[in-house]
Design a binder for these strands. Sequence first.
RNA 1: CGGGGUGUAGUUCAGUGGCUAGAACGCUCGCUUUGGGAGCGAGAGGUCGCCGGUUCAAGUCCGGCCGCCCCGACCA
Length: 582
Amino acid sequence: MKYSKLFGKTVREAKKEMTAKSHQLLYTGGFIRELSAGRYEFLPLGFRVWKKLVNVIDEEMEAISSQRFSIPILQPMEFWAKSNRDKAWGKSLMKIKDRTGAEFALSATGEGVVTEMVAGTNPTYKDLPVIVHQFIIKLRDEKRARGGLLRTREFVMKDAYSFHDTEEDFMNTYDDFYKAYSRICERIGLNYYACIADSGPLGGDYCHEFQIPCDAGEDHIVKCEKCDYAVNVEKAEFVRKEVNKKEEMKEYKMADLPEKVQKIKDLMKHYDMPAEMFIKNVLYKTLDGKKLIIATVTGDLDVNSVKLAKAVGEDELEIGEDVDLKSIGSKTGYLHSWGYDEHKDRIIYVVDEGITKTRNLYGGYKTATQDPLNVNYGRDFEADIVADIAEPYDGAICGKCRGVLKLIRSIEWGHIFKYDHFYTKHHDGFFTDRDGQKKLMYMGAYGIGIGRSLATVVETHHDDKGISWPISVAPYKVHLVSLGEDKAVNKKALSLYEEIEKAGIEILWDDRIDVSAGVKFNDADLIGIPIRLIVSEKSLGKGGIEMKLRKNKESEIIKADNLLEVLREKITQLEDELIPKK
RNA sequence: CGGGGUGUAGUUCAGUGGCUAGAACGCUCGCUUUGGGAGCGAGAGGUCGCCGGUUCAAGUCCGGCCGCCCCGACCA
């Protein structure tokens, strides 16, 4: 491709509202444009990268015997209603009516349709497992799109589904996907953690998220520095500090406390005690607003709403608002850990396990002028539920090995899901077993967002000059830059371009003769093609062509006669660097 | 959906109620230049987000609507 003919050129400046580095670089480099919030156009350069990602993923799916298929974007609403997923998705699920008034959901995910498609073939145990994948557009009316391609309302996802006769067979496939995902990460240059995560209401006792450490990410995971434990904060097990455990229980009493002492920070100062000695209460409510949950943790911790929801058996919880506090006669800063007896039917008291491990706590029943001292769980109050509801923090003690947990910000790049019977139960997902009986299939689902993958690669492969693509997904392998108007130089460049292209090596030639060397180099740095060839009077004077890798500072002069050989060697070398030798 | 911000040339942005709305970059033409965002000259390019109001006069003030971004709660 000649750069002069490439549709979509570089631009000098990103919009100031583009805060994610990948967003800025993909925009200025001429890879993407925005149509409306969270909906992006891929320019030819961006689409080439997109296509490479799809190819790598497809190859790895085929390698574990997944078969590519495709389903429509419009899915009859009944598929969503059967498992009540239409309500669970709420406004995020987009809907449309056809001319007869029939309602369709716009493909937000495909479990329902795929389950019935497979069940419709009337499978027997001999047909299982069925493993299929597709690359299809997902439409989700996200509350907030952000970070360019990191989170969009419209994106192509590789979604795969597997159906099995037994849990054991499912686990084998789950493991295959785990390995395939790991391999995809390696091939496209992503450092990942396969994290245990909560699977929420969709069956399954766990699932794995493939998380890429990156400051632009929205997720938080913790990773143990000693053992392999890598886990989403919503599921992380960590050891509570055992404060005062040996101390005797002291006498419970109410102590005077100035009204302005409200926050944990104020209390620490007032009593000169560490945060973990205080009781902190946070109000949550169920989505229907019928139940209030008082979550109690020690003052050094925060409540994790996913953990809390799981503890009380809800899919999701909301933070309680002022009106909710008022409805039980409380207000901000004065929520009690016990004692709302007249609202007993509406309130669930949940205490973090850390509370039960600490002697002689402060607080938990603050009034306008007083607050209790020497509060002990079991003696002075009891909750309906004791559970792990706290968010782990950087430096917390690993629940698996007592090592130190590190808190890492990350991008959720991919997700593998164990559904058990959740969808097959709702969609008549039966197969005929050896004994002739109809049984429910075991099911799993596995997703990777293509646009997000693209953004994630940029987030993790750039410097202050621009992108530096891993060779596996680079839009072109070689960027030929010819300098100046000199006839000999440009004739040479043309012949090299034709030779390389003919050899089947993807090449972009910056053939512009009316721009300065500086512009060309800066554009090349920005676009980030891994191998750069420079032809100029200077390089010809040195008897050859200059070759420079995007990721390196130094360049070398190579002879024109074995150019193709050198290029092929370089490409193989760069590919090999991505995949660690086992 | 709550909080904060923003909307003016292709792009990034200036613009105190007052003349024909500006700059830089980019673009077009000519000449010079060509190893890290070149120089000179000439030129094209605007529904100041939309609707309404106040005013002799509105890009500027007021109201409403819309778009977009950021921070929080949810997800590949």
